Simulated scan of single mutants.
Amino acid sequence: MIINFIHFPILLGADNEQYTNCSRSYPCTDILDIPYPFWGGDKPEYCGNPSFELNCQGEAPIITIDSRPYRVLSINNATFTLNVAREEFWNNNCPAELHNATLDATHFQYAPNTEDLMLYYGCRAIVTELPIPSRFNCSENQITDTFGTYMAANLPSGTQFTPNANCSNGVSVRVNQTAAAALADNASGNITQVLNSGFGLVWEANNTDCQRCVGSGGRCGTNSTVAGSFVCYCPDGNYSILCNSTKISSGRYPLILLVLFLKVVR
């Protein structure tokens, strides 16, 4: 008996599993629905972009950018912006370790209404050259006569300050520009509130392609078989950008066995 097998690809019909899954609402802690390019929790990675994973296990979503965790306070899908706060500074002016954060420039930029706030630690004397410095208390190695101070990064021309001359350490933290200005005008302002108010980030993750995809009736996602490239999930299959344009193979071909010839040798 001789049996020949042929594989016939079966096209996805109206029930495209990826389209259906990516059309659902996915909450992440206090955010009721996380849009593309974000994913995490119950939302599959193929419905988002690999660089936009959210940790949904705590009291607020956490996104990690260049190895630093950020608390996500809000997401605005219309303007491609999110408001975040440094997780180690959340309700904490004096973290155990100080890190100057950097961004993944491929996907994120600071929003225009942000600036750096300089935080200095282990300061033992009033730094007179700073414009309206303000103190906050930190105990460093149980030395109680040290304090922290902060200042905006946009210093007046000619201002000079060397952290090591008066303070043992320092770090730059991004904050909302309006909040920083209010803090500079009021030396008794609440530094914790400023840090907790967060700052804006603008993201880029095939933004234009996603808008076109959604406009054609599709849902945005990532093609895991082609190095994380963009894909538009549609009811009848997967497309490169627009529904009913260039279809992408799903890569899933059920095996159909066809007996072409049967010969019985007696």
Rank of each mutant, 00 (worst) to 15 (best):
F8I: 05
N49P: 00
Y110I: 06
F80R: 14
L11N: 11
V226R: 10
T29D: 14
F38M: 05
P254G: 01
V173C: 06
F38W: 02
N244S: 11
A60Q: 04
G237W: 05
C210G: 10
P112M: 02
F38E: 03
T192G: 10
M118H: 08
N166W: 09
T162N: 11
T102M: 05
G198A: 12
S229F: 03
N196E: 15
A165P: 01
T222S: 09
L195K: 07
A14Q: 09
N176P: 05
P50W: 00
N93H: 04
P163A: 04
A105M: 13
L103Y: 10
Q142T: 12
P69S: 03
F108R: 01
S67I: 07
G251F: 02
N223D: 06
A181N: 13
D116P: 07
A96W: 10
R174A: 08
P95H: 03
Q142I: 10
S229N: 09
N137E: 14
S139E: 14
T144L: 10
I62W: 00
V259E: 00
P254C: 01
N207V: 13
P95I: 06
C56Q: 01
H7R: 02
R252I: 13
F80D: 14
Q109G: 05
R68F: 15
C22E: 06
W203A: 12
A180P: 02
E115R: 11
S229M: 06
G158W: 04
Y36N: 06
L201R: 10
S23R: 12
I191Y: 01
E45D: 09
K43H: 08
P37R: 05
A105F: 15
G198C: 15
G221T: 08
F38C: 04
P27C: 13
P61T: 09
L257A: 03
E87Q: 08
N92G: 04
I10K: 14
G215E: 09
L255V: 05
N77A: 15
V194P: 01
P35E: 09
A85E: 11
N83M: 14
P27H: 10
F108N: 03
V202K: 14
C220H: 00
Q177Y: 14
H7T: 00
A153T: 11
D42M: 12
V84T: 07
E204A: 15
N55M: 03
G122I: 01
M151F: 12
D66V: 09
E97H: 05
V214G: 01
I248D: 01
N164H: 13
L183E: 02
S67K: 06
Q142F: 11
D116K: 11
S25R: 13
L255N: 02
S172L: 09
G237F: 10
N83P: 06
I248P: 00
G148W: 01
T106G: 10
D33R: 12
Q177I: 11
G189R: 07
D104A: 10
D15E: 15
A165F: 11
V194E: 04
V214K: 06
T81L: 05
I6W: 00
V127K: 01
Q109F: 07
N223R: 02
N223H: 03
